[in-house]
């Protein structure tokens, strides 16, 4: 790491969206894939874009890489307006969802591709490619064709290919989506470690809330082309701003206004995390209901309790006794666990 790190770049945002919209279809009846998005991604951060499919997160990623152009608004990369800059001149690289490896090239040439088109000579780019392959633990795989690799290996090649250019921002489009659970968890740790080691800004698109919460420094939750909430994982998990966020992130209990009031809050929508609740004896408590069922989750059990106006989920830690379905049960929680949300 050089000692003369320019202080101004250190402070600028890696990516900024100012009132960015991307509409598809006829102007008379546009499909608003991205609708008035305001976004600032800090340099060196691991930023996740989370949302269901069709929520606009992938379109946002493609707006950064340049494969989509905003219908209106401005996108800046390290302070520079990129409205006029085609993808090949943006120092931003992408790990594609289906990896998009070049099938006619071996792994080494795939990784060295970015250097080749920049005119780096053969020896140098091959050395650099091998270095990158070693970084993603694929040393010695240079001569294989992408078709001969497993899904996880292809994903690493795609990563090495994107990193060889030393991009200022690395975009990852659901990169773990095609991997099985175990591999996915291992890759999550590796990606996180890699990001910390390289200090490159990572922008990560996913529909998996667990992945976003565990990996990101900050994240944006997308819904219908808009950002529903932006913040650190803790903020978003503990204090969802809207019902959508509460529903989508985690498996919160979403309480309608009258139930919130019964639970001791104001007459507004609120969220209450299942693990913030615990079961107590039914007699003598303010809140009680009837057990309707329980599901074993491994690390605990999820018990559902019917109260007037809602069905409340409660996480009971492993080992604790489970109430029988149909029995009456009391509910208790710390007052600050009840999080009141804005709007309906």
């Amino acid at each position: 790491m050089g000692v003369t790190l320019p202080t101004d770049t250190h402070m600028t945002a890696a990516v900024e969206f100012r009132a960015v919209s991307r509409h598809f279809g006829p102007p008379s009846a546009p499909v608003r894939a991205v609708d008035g998005v305001e976004l600032t991604i800090a340099e060196g951060s691991f930023f996740a874009m989370l949302g269901p499919s069709g929520s606009g997160k992938t379109t946002c990623l493609r707006l950064i890489s340049g494969f989509e152009k905003p219908t209106s608004g401005t996108i800046r990369i390290f302070g520079q307006d990129v409205s006029d800059v085609p993808p090949n001149r943006r120092n931003v690289n992408t790990v594609f969802q289906d990896y998009a490896l070049f099938p006619h090239m071996n792994v080494r040439d795939n990784v060295a591709y970015g250097l080749m088109v920049k005119g780096v000579d053969r020896r140098l780019r091959h050395d650099k490619a091998e270095e990158m392959l070693a970084l993603v633990k694929l040393g010695g795989y240079g001569d294989r064709k992408p078709g001969q690799l497993s899904g996880g290996q292809r994903q690493r090649v795609a990563l090495a290919r994107a990193l060889v250019n030393e991009p200022r921002v690395l975009l990852l489009d659901e990169p773990l989506g095609a991997l099985d659970l175990k591999l996915r968890e291992a890759m999550q740790d590796e990606l996180k470690a890699l990001q910390q080691r390289l200090g490159i800004t990572f922008v990560f698109v996913t529909h998996d809330q667990g992945e976003a919460l565990s990996m990101a420094d900050s994240l944006a939750v997308f819904n219908e082309g808009k950002i529903a909430q932006i913040g650190t994982p803790e903020e978003i998990y503990a204090r969802p701003r809207t019902r959508f966020v509460a529903d989508f992130v985690g498996s919160s209990n979403v309480l309608p206004p009258e139930v919130t009031r019964a639970f001791g809050g104001p007459a507004a929508w609120a969220s209450l995390r299942p693990e913030a609740l615990h079961l107590v004896a039914a007699d003598g408590v303010a809140l009680s209901g009837t057990v309707t069922g329980s599901r074993y989750l491994g690390a605990g059990s999820r018990v559902t309790v019917a109260v007037p106006g809602a069905e409340i989920a409660v996480i009971v830690p492993a080992g604790a006794p489970l109430p029988a379905p149909g029995s009456a049960i009391g509910l208790a929680f710390a007052p600050d666990a009840l999080h009141v949300m804005e709007g309906a």
Binding site: L5, G79, N88, R89, R90, N91, V92, R168
Partner: peptide, 8 residues
């Protein structure tokens, strides 16, 4: 590592 330009 000196930062490369954001726009090539």
């Amino acid at each position: 590592m000196t930062a490369s330009p954001a726009i090539l």
